[in-house]
Amino acid sequence: MLLIEELKVEVGGKPILKNINMEVPRGETHILFGPNGSGKTTLMMTLMGFSGYHITHGKITFKGEDITHMPIHERAQLGIGISLQRPPTINGLKTRNIVEICGAMQGGADVEKLARELNFSEFLDRDVNHNFSGGEIKRSELLQLMAQQPDLVLLDEPESGVDLENMALVGETINLLLGRGIQCPAPSDGPFVNRASDTAKSALVITHTGHILDYITADKGRVLYEGVLCFTRNAREILKWIRQRGYEGCARCTI
């Protein structure tokens, strides 16, 4: 689904990602750990194609297509969706409208229904991200992704700022979005079809605290430290190690 080869990225002339190689196969959820400033967000923004992230070397392939220099909207249309850590406010544009824009890629979405499911109906008539709290921003981003239904979901710290009351809801929504943990009955008039795996999406999830792992299941975890991927293992195992030894110790023990 997603293949990153020898990726080097500079921001403002400063090298941030220093040789990233990784693959996220179809249907797998990968977790990206790393301390502040290690380059996690830079990797996400580069994958989506935002300006200011200058690729100096390497290649990104998605669904077999070279997307290294593809414009943002074409990546979105090809099936990449992102939940930003700090999305901008857009004055005068209602949340309802941006969800409709997302849904348009799938030929329309039932905005009201999705918003009810995310306990977000009362925000539909507010300007996009205007005076939203950290947790409200996350729910707004997830609502947009639910309408968009991308095949590769990039989540940048989906749990940060979410209050306890909504944390389970956010976790469930992510599972729903990723096509994970859903009971899918076999059609009665046909042979058994494993729908869950058919509809399962690929995901790359940044977490700083690891709390999201209480809610979603991950196939793999990686640690990004000073612009280098230094570690690939079971996500829970990594989390445990980080808690015991800190990122630095974690990075050192692989060298």
């Binding site: 414009p71 909207h73 979105a76 901008p88 857009i90 005068g92 544009l93 997302c102």
Partner: peptide, 23 residues
């Protein structure tokens, strides 16, 4: 770019923002 990440091309994104601004 935020709106482009939601599937709009650059012109559509600009026009959406302008409409919001005047709203």
């Amino acid at each position: 770019e935020y709106l482009m990440a939601r599937g709009l091309d650059e012109d559509e994104a600009v026009s959406t923002i302008v409409r919001g601004f005047l709203n």
